[in-house]
Nucleic acid binder design. Sequence first.
DNA 1: TCTGGGGTCCTAGGACCC
DNA 2: TCTGGGGTCCTAGGACCC
Length: 443
Amino acid sequence: MTQPKPRLDDKSGGGRAIALIDGNSFYCSCERTFDPKLAGLPVIVLSNNDGCAIARTAEAKALGIKMGDPYFKIRDLCRAQGVRVFSSNYTLYGDMSARTNAVYRGFASAIEIYSIDESFLDLTDVRPDRRVELARDLRATVRAWTGIPTCVGIGPTKTLAKLANHIAKSIAPLDGVCDLTDPDAYAHWLGRIHVGEVWGIGRASLAKLEAMGVDTVADLRDLDPRPVRKAMTVVGERIIHELRGVSCLPLGLMPAQRKGCAVTRSFGSRVEDRASLAQAVSAHATRLGEKLRREGLGTDHVTVFFHTSEHDRDHPQRSVSTVVTLPEASNDSLVLIKAALHGIAKTWRPQGDPPWRYSKAGVITVDLVPLVASQRALIGQLDREQGAALMAALDACNARFGRGAVVPARVGLERTRTGWSTKFEMRTPRYTTQIGELPVAIA
DNA sequence: TCTGGGGTCCTAGGACCC
DNA sequence: TCTGGGGTCCTAGGACCC
């Protein structure tokens, strides 16, 4: 990656303008889109396995519910305060995300989809005095077409756009838009925002910066980059340049090829028997195969892991992680399942008394490679072709009838009874992607 | 006392993000 | 009873090589 040479005297940003738009309490807003009665009520969405709160509306935040709060600790509060609680419905959120991005594309020459609820828009060709107006129009359009409320931050660099977005979200009179390409706004806000809000400053860096006497974003911007690089690596130095308006993080218009892929889940309840563990990792390996096939990638090493929970203080702890090498790179679910089961076979230990109570398992790959048939050995070609045809048929069935309609026998049909499968006890319908779950309107 | 001097590659672990 | 999942990037240090 070539980076522009930082010019430290350049505080204007040279005319570049990047917007960061994100959905407010995105998952909660998706739920609200399909149930207008949720408007004005506290709403939270839980992580996988109904474990923790990962999205909260303003009303829920006002009740003191924190990001990552375990649900079992706030359940009574939620009942008492009438908080509406949902399991996560990633199928719905993914589809709503695609809809918001379709709207964004109508407003900007180029966009980078950064996460499920955030995108960067290139507004460089929008006149400086028209940017806020455009942002307001964008917000209104997204709201009208998808139901999702958003905030927009604009800045000469990505880091400043992120910061502007934070300001837009937290300062009510700004009405959801903040433009730090405006020199007055830039001069006004940086000295008033805590340095911990800067993108890329986490707990560890914050502690170091506070020890250096840094309090506001402006304090960090005005630091000598060299000692900061010593303490926080090149990442810290880059942040300083970005805060000065010198771009170090280019817009990534093309989605990069992923480097690794993982499928990991906590069990719905603790697992002590080998059969359940084998079934769980088989299901994870199946899902891994689906993800890899969708992107034309393969792998020749699979890491299989399982472990007990550190929260089970009164029980023995065990953590296992083992790498299984495949004969050649593959994305065939049956090959991946075989590898995962081999990983279990290598590492399983008979239970004693007290037993190990396993809480989570998964399969992980790194070093993904594009899977191109012509580059592969002729030996085994027939097996591979048959395997590929089988996987294509399986993917087609699952695309048509819903994921899990057809699964390898090893994954089993009794998943809900065996206790390992993930809990989603409060999940809403997949309104936009399953014909049988369409919302019903009565006129 | 002095003990060669670079390179590259890989891995583990830290930090951070949503 | 009950505590998420999936990524990226960076660095230090060891192995190995000539």
